[in-house]
Structures are given as structure tokens and as C-alpha cells.
Design a protein around this nucleic acid. Structure first.
Lengths: 165, 165
DNA sequence: CGCTTTCTTCAGAAATTTGTGAAGTTAAGG
DNA sequence: CCTTAACTTCACAAATTTCTGAAGAAAGCG
């Protein structure tokens, strides 16, 4: 058990988890630094850390933290909080935010749909290719609705299992 | 209307669609060449093309086609077909394959779940961080089941709208 | 069999992405 | 106000990824 002075947590175990889960996220297409930062937050007891804490735990420069956090904030995977009366900022991962971000490909889906619509128009609805694109488009439209309903079911399920937020 | 001799299709329009949709896929994390090849197949009238056709349309080397196709086959986004009695191979995108591939993050989900389970164990179920990981894990397990049911609904919906395969 | 077509593999060049140090900006604290 | 802490931005170096040309393997065809 490797326990840094007074932390009350096994720093090495945390680090092992952070690196292994981050690696999975990277493999799924997330840039490395954002993946590491996000996972570190996920594995923190508070669910939030400061820039300095992140830099120290992950052994990266403030610049790297800054870049990773910018990415995560843009994609709604973390929120930034100001500690009142301090220059320090806390980066936070809320449980539901994480799920929503994962599914909230919504913006992405919308753009895909747009591109597909253009394709159908310019190739012609009656061509074989046009028909294939139409079907793909229909699938995405279907998805959109389904995902929404599914998230609602999750909220219910979650509350039953883990209790209110 | 730019129409190459006898093709019966507006090559430039096809190309515009291919590049714009591929760009969206890239932005979502797919490597460039696979994205372009996949979209070219999606926009072809046959739903399939040979290596030579792909190389010509996309202006890339046979090596690039080979690499892209390998990626796409591994991720189950295209299938390879041998033309009987010929060395030529056709790469095909079947409608349902594309949908399944998109959702068939199944393998990915499994590995995420594994990493999360390890995390819960080593951080301890009773710690705040451990509880957060547990909840994330539960979400993925929930997802797994939902996606399956959803795809079944899509198949029904699809058949109603577009008729049998 | 050997020729030819088709695809694959490989080494390396080119381009892109990533992370850093250093300088810049903002705002609290004296 | 001036100092200092906290974060951000920027230019560049380093690492990684991507694509190509060239050589290699597999398989039909004569």
C-alpha cells in the first residue's frame, strides 16, 4: 500500500486506475491529456480538483492542464467552478454530465444529418446511392429520439438504485 | 454538372459529399483514410467498389486503400467479397452493418467496464470515488441492454419504412 | 510453369498532433 | 497601486501518425 503522507488514499492505486481507464478512452478516440485529466477527476474523492492538483498528480505542465480542461469544457465533460474569493479554479465532473457528454453526440449527430441531407439532394433521392443515404439519415433521426427516451429511463433507474443526486 | 464519360453520375457532386461527410467522421475520431473510403462506398450506387476504383476516385495509392480497408474490416464497417474467378476484391458496405458498427462499441464498452471494475475494487466500494465509479459502471451496464433493444426497434421501424432488405 | 494482375507489407518522408517553457493576462491581497 | 498567485496563450521541439513508392506475395491464366 503506497500512501502519500496524510492523503488517506493509495496514490499508486489511483494512478494505476487513471492510466488504464484513460488508455481505454484514448483508444476510443479521445486525445490523451483530456482523457487523463477527466479520469483523474472521475477518480477523485471530491469529484473535483484544482489545476495544481491535476498537474502534480499527472506530472504535466500547467499548460497541458489548461489545454486539456479547455477541451473537456468545450465538450461538456467537466464544468469549471471559481472558488469564491480566490484565483483558484476547480474543475468538476458531475455524474450526470459524464453520461450526457457520452450520449450528447447530439451536436455531432446534427452535423452528420446535415451532411447526409446535402448528399441525398445532390445525388438524387431516386438513385441507389441516394436511397442508401436516405436510409442512413433515417437511422440517425431514429437514434436521436431513442437516445432521449433512454436517458430518461436511466435517470429513473439510477435514482432507484443510488438514490437522489 | 460535371459528368465523367459514361459514368451516369455527377462525379464532382459525389466527391463533394464524400469529402464533407468524411470530414465529419474524422472530427468524431475516425482516421482520415478509413473515413474517406467508407464514405465513398456509402455513396456508390452498388454499395461496393474495388480497390482500383477507390484509388482512382479518392486519388490515393493502393497502399492507402489497403490500410483503410483493413481498418474498416477490423471494425466491421465493411465486408470484403471475392469476385469469383478473379483476383479482384470488392469492398462492400451493407446498410445494417454500418448501424451495427456504430453501436457495436460493445467490445469497447466491455473493456471500459473491466477497467471500471478494477478501479472500484482498488479504490474501495465505500470511498466516494469508488461510489462514483460504481455508478458509471452501472450506467454502462444499463446502456448495453438498452442498445440491444433499440436496435431491434430500429429493424422493425426500418422494414416498415423501406421494406425488407 | 512463368506471366500478369491485384493486393499487401514495409521503410521512410511528410504532415500533423502534442506538450513544454516562457511570456502574457487577470484579479486578489496588501 | 504594486505584488503575487493562478491560469492562459504562444512558438517551437518532439513524438506520433499518415501516406507513398517500391518490393513482395498470392492467384488466375495461358
Amino acid at each position: 500500500m503506497t500512501e502519500s503522507a496524510g492523503s488517506g488514499r493509495d496514490a499508486e492505486a489511483v494512478s494505476r486506475f487513471v492510466e488504464s481507464f484513460a488508455a481505454q478512452l484514448v483508444e476510443a478516440g479521445m486525445p490523451r491529456m483530456p482523457a487523463r485529466v477527466f479520469t483523474a477527476l472521475l477518480a477523485s474523492d471530491e469529484g473535483s480538483m484544482t489545476s495544481a492538483e491535476l498537474g502534480e498528480q499527472l506530472r504535466i505542465s500547467p499548460a497541458a492542464v489548461s489545454g486539456a480542461v479547455r477541451y473537456l469544457a468545450q465538450t461538456h465533460m467537466v464544468s469549471r467552478e471559481r472558488e469564491p474569493g480566490s484565483r483558484r479554479e476547480r474543475y468538476r465532473v458531475r455524474g450526470d454530465q459524464w453520461y450526457e457528454a457520452l450520449t450528447n453526440r447530439e451536436a455531432v449527430l446534427k452535423r452528420w444529418e446535415g451532411a447526409l441531407r446535402d448528399g441525398v439532394t445532390s445525388l438524387g433521392v431516386t438513385t441507389p446511392a441516394g436511397r442508401r443515404l436516405s436510409e442512413t439519415l433515417a437511422f440517425f433521426e431514429f437514434l436521436q429520439g431513442e437516445v432521449e427516451a433512454m436517458m430518461e429511463r436511466w435517470r429513473v433507474h439510477r435514482e432507484k438504485t443510488f438514490g437522489p443526486e
